[in-house]
Write a protein that binds this DNA or RNA. Structure first.
Length: 551
RNA sequence: GCCCCCGUAGCUCAGUUGGAUAGAGCGACUGCCUUCUAAGCAGCAGGUCGCAGGUUCGAGUCCUGCCGGGGGCGCCA
């Protein structure tokens, strides 16, 4: 319905423009926007500025003509159209359009409001975190973890078939180093230069009673660490569909198979005893080694076999890899390799998150000087941790000041938002106690559509606070779509903060229950409260944050 | 040297893919609780949007060049 009003306005503009011989079928779409200021109306269009030149007319003149035509043939809820500024066409609508949106939210409910189908069931895999199992997760992993999970939730809500995967780097050098560190710890020797020095190594060494074999010890440690990683991720609400082992693909023979197949093209060649991918021909800035001169395969070769598995065996339509910016260097070669495998480059999307650092110190896994995600969650709790990481774009490098974050933990934005939810719950609990018809109907309703909504006069919602609240609620579908398309879950955070602010304002100025509020107004406001609750739950659900009924 | 990201209020960040008078939170100051939770509301203060050009009706947003910060350019993973 919110889309309906947009479409209606666009159509009426298109119809009017048509009489000037402008056809809007092509590249130019009428772009409607919500003016920042209320005096500029409910919706605004810049079409006249765009088409004025083409038509050889002054923008304002064109706008005036259009306004006249639309006034003469008004649509539902239309009040007036005005020309403003250099040639904007501003639309003013009756409040009734907001009342309809309130009704829509209640009818569609948490399951259906702000849900989209544009994903068309497309199989999408998101791979994120994938930290080496050589130590506990650090806060940077948590950042991209929240991001990846929230993005996955957005994809789910927009009609995609989503799978979350963690690629486990359980082989190669770092596992060897981990094994050596473990054995050194067990035998009281010094930890090697490139080894891991965190306390956890000692703890695992105490549990290890296996042979003095480096890889055996390394794999033992990796397994223990990975189990802890899983626990940490679950703590902040991240659950994976699959954990894919790097060792498994390297041991499967698939890598050699893949390289053999690639050799039939002219994209693979031998040079100085190594096997190379001619990545330069595929957009990379240098060629890359697949098989080293000593016969070992490179990380890239394994990664390509892994991606081949994603696309060709598991048939994902789209694969989104989420890496930290420190892996930027491998993107071009990965893309080149995927191209070499005959996979359409657009199917692979690599998103880079700028790094998280801690004020005043360098984080290093080998040195054991990084801040553990678990410690941050201990300090702030899961909800505050997630919101903190979903506040800004992943293009923004974050420097965490732990002292500041801890000191301000009570002022974390998440409480402001959750407090709105708690207030709503409180109103609803009170309403049930007072045997209010709406509250009781809702409590007993199997579906929202059985609510006695027909009896409620939503037109009573006319207070600026009420209207502002509905306006914000009405934006949620667009926010969800945009956040998904732009891979920007932080837009949901920005929106939900606005919603909470609007609700607190409403709560302050508009009582829902009480003797000085008429029964009809109580009903109408109760509906608005419920619509807010639904919207809040949707947004918090997308962010992976809980909605507490009491605080 | 080349590639990616960032530079917006004292601090942390938004900014509707180019729109009208650039917004929040924190911090400072001032008001508001006998009524659904004051973890709230309202007011006030705070800006050459890093700098310089360009594109056009219009630029925080797009292009170019500088300056500053972060990351990357392995037969490591």
């Amino acid at each position: 319905m919110i889309l309906a009003i947009v479409e209606t306005i666009v159509e009426s503009i298109a119809k009017a423009l048509n009489t000037f011989g402008v056809d809007l079928g092509g590249d130019h779409k009428v772009h409607l926007e919500r003016p920042a200021r209320a005096e500029h109306g409910d919706f605004s269009s810049n079409v006249c500025l765009v088409f004025a030149k083409k038509l050889g007319m002054a923008p304002r003149l064109l706008a005036e003509r259009l306004a006249e035509m639309i006034q003469a043939d008004p649509f539902e809820d239309f009040l007036r159209a005005e020309v403003a500024g250099p040639g904007f066409l501003n639309f003013y609508l009756a409040d009734s359009y907001l009342h309809k949106i309130t009704l829509q939210v209640l009818t569609e409910g948490e399951d259906n409001y702000a849900r989209h189908t544009f994903g068309n069931g497309q199989k999408v895999q998101l791979e994120f975190v994938s930290a080496n199992p050589t130590g506990p997760l650090h806060v940077g992993n948590g950042w991209l973890g929240s991001y990846g999970d929230a993005l996955a939730r957005l994809f789910e809500r927009t009609g995609h078939d989503v799978s979350r995967e963690y690629y486990v780097n359980d082989t190669g050098n770092q596992i060897r180093m981990l094994g050596e560190s473990l054995l050194a710890r067990r035998e009281g020797r010094d930890i090697p230069e490139e080894g891991y020095r965190g306390d956890y190594v000692g703890e695992i060494a105490d549990k290890y009673d296996g042979p003095n074999d480096v890889m055996t010890a390394g794999k033992f440690a990796a397994t223990v660490i990975l189990d802890d990683i899983k626990v940490t991720l679950e703590r902040i609400g991240i659950h994976y569909d699959s954990w894919y082992s790097q060792a498994s693909i390297e041991e499967s023979g698939k890598v050699a198979e893949m390289i053999d197949r690639m050799k039939t093209s002219d994209l693979v060649y031998e040079h100085e005893g190594a096997t190379w991918l001619a990545a330069t021909k595929l957009g990379d800035n240098r060629d890359r080694v697949l098989i080293k001169a000593n016969g070992d395969i490179t990380y890239l070769a394994g990664d390509l076999a892994y991606h081949q598995n994603k696309f060709l065996e598991r048939k994902f339509d789209k694969v989104i890899d989420i890496f930290g910016a420190d892996h930027h260097g491998q993107v071009a070669s990965l893309k080149a390799g995927v191209k070499a495998l005959g996979i359409a480059p657009d199917c692979l999307e690599v998103l880079l998150g700028q790094l998280v650092s801690i004020a005043g110190r360098k984080m290093s896994k080998r040195a054991g000087t990084y801040v553990k995600l678990d410690d941050l969650v201990d300090e702030l709790g899961p909800d505050a941790t997630r919101i903190l990481s979903l506040l800004s774009s992943i293009d923004q490098a974050t420097t965490l000041d732990l002292d500041l974050v801890t000191a301000q933990s009570a002022e974390n934005p998440v409480f402001y938002i959750q407090y709105a939810y708690a207030r709503i719950s409180s109103i609803q609990a009170m309403a049930r106690e007072q045997n209010l018809p709406m509250a009781l109907a809702e409590a007993n309703a199997t579906s929202a559509s059985t609510l006695p909504l027909a009896d409620v006069n939503l037109a009573l919602l006319s207070h600026p606070r009420e209207l502002q609240l509905v306006k914000t609620i009405s934006l949620l579908p667009e926010v969800v779509e945009q956040a998904t398309r732009e891979r920007a879950p932080h837009k949901v955070t920005t929106w939900v903060r606005t919603l909470a602010a609007d609700f607190h304002g409403f709560y302050h100025d508009c009582r829902v229950l009480g003797d000085d509020v008429s029964a009809d107004l109580t009903d109408a406001r109760y509906c608005l409260v419920e619509a807010t609750r639904i919207s809040l739950r949707i947004a918090l659900g997308l962010l992976g944050v809980t909605a507490p009924e009491r605080m």
